[in-house]
């Protein structure tokens, strides 16, 4: 069993505490786990090694049918969130196994991923840190992007020019955050510093430099697949429920 540790959590908010010398440590409170192993991927059968875990128990109407069947087969409950974590070897994990906050300990370095807060359709100032125009002396281009190119030559807008765009609500990863505290009773993990996303947002915690992140960087789709399926499950849950009635 590799020593990569992973867990799903919910962001609960931020606070701080004092070290003995009076310096303040800013921390994010994460309600971590309990997570249940829902599937184990082996190189022999699936072509890659990973462990899938579920977080936040759900009722059947909130879970996509294929996930329901898979859960039934594996003999595990239904979950709102399911994620896979790549490992060097999935040995030592079996479906139904529970993972709690205490898989991590103080001092562990983790990569933390979540969905960042949505900023809507953001202008160039918020999205690309453009400068603001002057506010006085009759200026009317306070938050305008300004010129976006030349005239007859090249007679087009250069590709990749920074413009207003949808911002936030995207996957964001912070690497090498330090876990400063774990409370088994409360099921709480304290991570030093901020974490992407709104309160109650779902957060993935993985040991820093894990194969999961490496696989993501290589752009391997297999890691992403369960995520997509999960999102689809949420969207399609309503029409499916209607049909059942």
């Amino acid at each position: 069993m590799s020593n990569v540790k992973f867990l799903l959590a919910r962001k609960k908010g931020m606070t701080q505490f004092f070290r003995e010398d009076g310096t303040v440590v800013p921390v994010t409170v994460l309600e971590a786990g309990p997570c249940t192993v829902t599937a184990v991927r082996t190189p022999e059968r699936d072509g890659y090694a990973a462990v899938q875990i579920g977080f936040l128990p759900a009722r059947a109407k909130h879970v996509h049918k294929p996930q329901q069947k898979a859960a039934e087969k594996a003999g595990v409950g239904l979950f709102r969130v399911q994620r896979e974590f790549r490992l060097d070897s999935p040995n030592g994990f079996r479906p139904g196994q529970e993972l709690k906050a205490d898989v991590f300990g103080p001092g562990d370095m983790v990569d933390v991923s979540g969905t960042s807060k949505g900023k809507g359709f953001a202008g160039t100032i918020k999205a690309h840190h453009f400068n603001q125009g002057p506010e006085s002396h009759g200026c009317m281009n306070v938050r305008q992007p300004g010129s976006i190119g030349s005239s007859a030559d090249p007679a087009r807008v250069l590709r990749g020019l920074r413009m207003a765009r949808h911002l936030g609500a995207a996957r964001a990863t912070l690497r090498n955050l330090v876990i400063v505290g774990v409370d088994q009773e409360l099921g709480v993990i304290l991570v030093r510093g901020g974490v992407p996303g709104p309160p109650n947002g779902v957060i993935e915690l993985v040991s820093a430099g894990s194969p999961t992140l490496a696989a993501r960087r290589r752009g391997e789709a297999a890691v992403k697949a369960p995520e997509k399926a999960d999102k689809g499950g949420k969207k399609d849950a309503r029409p499916a429920a209607k049909g059942a009635k």
Partner: peptide, 12 residues
Amino acid sequence: MNIVQTVEKKHM
């Protein structure tokens, strides 16, 4: 009391 306050209280 929410969970953040509970955590906070331990350090107060």
